[in-house]
Design a protein around this nucleic acid. Structure first.
Lengths: 129, 129
DNA sequence: GGACATTCAATGCACATGCATCTAGTGTCG
DNA sequence: CGACACTAGATGCATGTGCATTGAATGTCC
């Protein structure tokens, strides 16, 4: 039970740290760049990869979003002109998602906001500088 | 920029760890105890304290929930018979929230689920056993 | 005491999410 | 070829959330 409370403490600090960062990210990405955190993360996954074409499913794999949430997130990004959805010829069930030029720009801008916020919250303890 | 990517990595692992735990908590608390994670957390804050009377505002203070979300969470708990809301006599704007007997029981049951899940995810790295 | 700012909690509203379902395209086995 | 299981992604629906506002009670200043 000593270990129980230790575990709970770790969970609480993990949770509160996460929420502190997430809330601020959500707010500032929205205010300054008109992006949801999920939208930013999605763009980020699309751009941080050599091959700039990814199927929905591949995206979903390393994101915390459910399949339906991702589908709608991509729909929003497309509506905003930040990504394009194209049918996959090999397997016509699949959908390729590619960032547009505007998407790349928006991501670059938003990234600065993200870095600033992360620095603010995560910098103090440079576990492995 | 080396430090940037380190920071981003830390954020990603924080985020993915949080979501892994949170998703499972959300699901199992719901399925086994008919509780939202927020509802459980609220009960937890009410019970983990000697003085068993807390104003909404005090609750909100050490929770990640917004004021409105907390208000509705407490409303749901009350509807489910797990807490009671009573007017605060000193300051009649305030509201005291107290767990009912059923609330205490439900919390105790749910706590076992929580501990099991936390152990599963957080135990592997006993940073300070 | 009376007007005005402030605080606590509740509520209208818009929205992102997850679950379950649906549609369409693929694979498989006879 | 034809039936049936399976997979990819979209969508209906219910719900939990945050922001902005409201309503009531309190504090403050003259």
């Amino acid at each position: 039970m000593g270990s129980d409370t230790g575990m709970i403490d770790r969970w609480r600090s993990l949770s509160s740290c996460y929420h502190a960062v997430a809330c601020q990210l959500e707010r500032e990405l929205q205010d300054d760049h008109d992006l949801t955190m999920s939208e930013y993360e999605t763009l980020d996954r699309l751009i941080g990869v050599e091959c700039e074409k990814r199927r929905m499913q591949d995206l979903a794999a390393d994101m915390y979003l459910s399949q339906s949430a991702l589908s709608r997130t991509v729909a929003r990004l497309e509506k905003g002109g930040l990504v394009e959805r194209t049918l996959c010829q090999d397997d016509r069930r699949g959908v390729f998602v590619t960032p547009t030029e505007a998407g790349v720009r928006r991501h670059a801008e938003a990234r600065r906001t993200q870095l600033a916020i992360l620095a603010q919250h995560l910098e103090p303890q440079p576990a492995h500088a």
